[in-house]
């Protein structure tokens, strides 16, 4: 069995890796609070997860973009915008938007829930694979923000008086919030909990 800070009766700082007596509240080297992972548990993970999901629903229902041209007024949701790109033959860009705004968030919600629900269960996935899944989710999650930036750029650029103008819709806000909340959810997940189950076995 591998000796861990916990099994040695110590508490580790997750910012600078120094170890301290288990009852120390703050790291003397870097000043970060030292959190007892068992006491904090998964509650913050679930809280941010639900907040993220709650924002993700309106983000898909309400328009992301409002386009006004001489002849027409159009509102596009996230998926509607991607469908339109496909219709124009911009497959690559449609793929980027669909991956960043639909695929990544959905996979992220499912993965975090899976990891949190199966924190002690080793039968389906080894610690190693679950840890890798966690790292992928954490790395990839922030890229969802790309669509919000696209909306910001389009709305600032396409302001050609009456000929064409683009403005952000309410979904831009809820989608950004959803990305922020799920990032916080992933960040408050402590990967050491995945490995703790090995020590207890």
């Amino acid at each position: 069995m591998i000796e861990t800070a916990k099994s040695a009766g110590l508490a580790a700082c997750t910012t600078c890796a120094r170890v301290w007596p288990h009852d120390q509240a703050r790291c003397d080297r870097c000043g970060s609070p030292i959190v007892d992972r068992d006491r904090r548990g998964l509650q913050p993970v679930w809280a941010w997860w639900f907040a993220g999901l709650l924002c993700y629903i309106p983000a898909n229902i309400y328009p992301m973009l409002r386009t006004k041209t001489l002849l027409a007024y159009q509102e596009n949701t996230i998926i509607g915008g991607a469908v339109e790109l496909v219709a124009h033959g911009s497959y690559g860009v449609a793929a980027i938007i669909l991956i960043a705004s639909v695929l990544i968030p959905v996979i992220k919600f499912l993965s975090i829930a899976y990891l949190a629900l199966n924190i002690r269960d080793r039968r389906r996935m080894s610690q190693h694979s679950r840890h890798q899944l966690y790292e992928v989710v954490e790395f990839v999650g922030r890229w969802s923000m790309v669509d919000v930036f696209v909306v910001a750029i389009l709305s600032s650029l396409i302001q050609l008086q009456d000929v064409a103008s683009i403005n952000p819709g309410p979904a831009a806000m809820t989608f950004a919030l959803s990305v922020i909340f799920t990032m916080l959810s992933a960040q408050s997940f402590d990967p050491r909990l995945i490995w703790d189950s090995e020590d207890q076995a």
């Binding site: 000796e3 861990t4 800070a5 110590l10 580790a12 890796a17 120094r18 170890v19 490995w195 703790d196």
Partner: peptide
């Protein structure tokens, strides 16, 4: 001594 140890920030191995 504690000051001569580090723990992995991801999995707590000492």
């Amino acid at each position: 001594a504690n000051k001569d140890l580090i723990a992995c920030r991801q999995c707590d191995a000492l």
